[in-house]
Simulated assay, not measured.
Amino acid sequence: MIALKETHLLAELRDPATKVAAFDRLIKGYQEVLYHHIRRIVINHDDTDDVLQNTLIKAWQNLDKFRGDANIKTWIYRIATNEALNFLKKKKRQAFQEVEDLQNDLRHSLSSGRYVDGDEIQIRLQEAIIALPERQKLVFNLRYFDEMPYDEISSILGVTVGALKASYHHAVKKVEHHLKRYA
């Protein structure tokens, strides 16, 4: 059923007469999950909105280049992930910050953000996730929060399923260790 819907949407996205309306449906279908995915990477609400907007612009600009090898969800998640990572790299370069400084900034955004629930365990969980190496953080977010299967994550990140499973396992252990310190 999902494949049929996706095939139909892809056909509409390729037809100049229905492209705009189909892209609008695509945005409505994925905007919220992409927002949360990006937010877990960049943390700050305003930055997330900027990255989401860039993601949607890049998706629109590259729509004609989409070959359909992967499904649309995987394709748009890959764009969102790359945009979020590029944003963080650019932010780091602009501020000439060390990784620890960037993590501290992200932690500060966590505790002072107006869109972050003040629940102590949620803050501790997000702190643990922020401290993870980049790949582990991405794999953890996609697997834990988005409940994405490993084969989809593999398509998004371009990493083998075995490597993803190892990254996720290590990330879970590090998150558990961090949370146990506060138990």
Rank of each mutant, 00 (worst) to 15 (best):
Q31W: 08
Y35N: 02
R114S: 14
K89N: 11
L138S: 00
V175G: 02
D146H: 03
N62R: 13
L13A: 06
A22H: 03
A84H: 10
H169Y: 15
Y144S: 06
K91A: 07
G158L: 04
I57Q: 11
G113A: 11
Y144W: 14
R40A: 05
Y30D: 06
I129K: 12
R40P: 06
E127H: 14
G162K: 01
H36E: 05
L63K: 02
K92F: 12
D47F: 12
D117P: 03
I153E: 01
W75T: 04
V20S: 12
N141S: 05
T7F: 03
H178Y: 12
A183D: 07
R181T: 03
L85T: 04
I121F: 13
Y77S: 01
N62E: 13
E134M: 14
E32P: 03
A17L: 08
V159M: 09
R143I: 00
A3G: 12
V159H: 03
D105T: 14
L164K: 00
M148P: 01
L88M: 10
F23W: 10
I41G: 01
E176F: 13
W60Y: 15
V159Y: 06
L110G: 09
Q94H: 09
L138Y: 01
E134S: 04
S167D: 13
L138H: 11
A21H: 08
V172R: 09
D24P: 07
A17Y: 10
N71R: 06
E83M: 05
D119T: 15
L164C: 00
V20W: 07
E134K: 14
F96N: 10
D24T: 15
E152D: 14
K180Q: 12
R25I: 10
N141T: 06
Y144D: 04
L110V: 10
E127V: 08
V99R: 00
R14E: 04
H108F: 10
M1Y: 10
H8A: 07
S111P: 03
I121R: 00
D105A: 15
I57Y: 11
V33W: 15
Q53K: 05
H177W: 06
N141G: 03
Q136R: 13
N44C: 04
D50Y: 09
E147L: 03
Y182L: 14
M148K: 10
E83R: 11
G29Q: 11
R25Y: 02
I76S: 00
H108M: 11
Q61N: 15
K5Q: 07
K90H: 13
Y168L: 03
A3E: 12
R143S: 01
L52W: 03
P133M: 08
D146L: 15
N54M: 09
D101V: 02
I38A: 01
D119H: 14
N86H: 11
V159Q: 04
K73R: 15
A70C: 07
Y182I: 13
Q31N: 15
K19Y: 06
I57G: 12
Y115P: 13
D24G: 04
I79G: 03
F87L: 07
Q122Y: 08
A171Q: 10
D15G: 10
H36S: 12
Q126C: 05
A21Y: 15
E32L: 15
D105Q: 14
F140H: 07
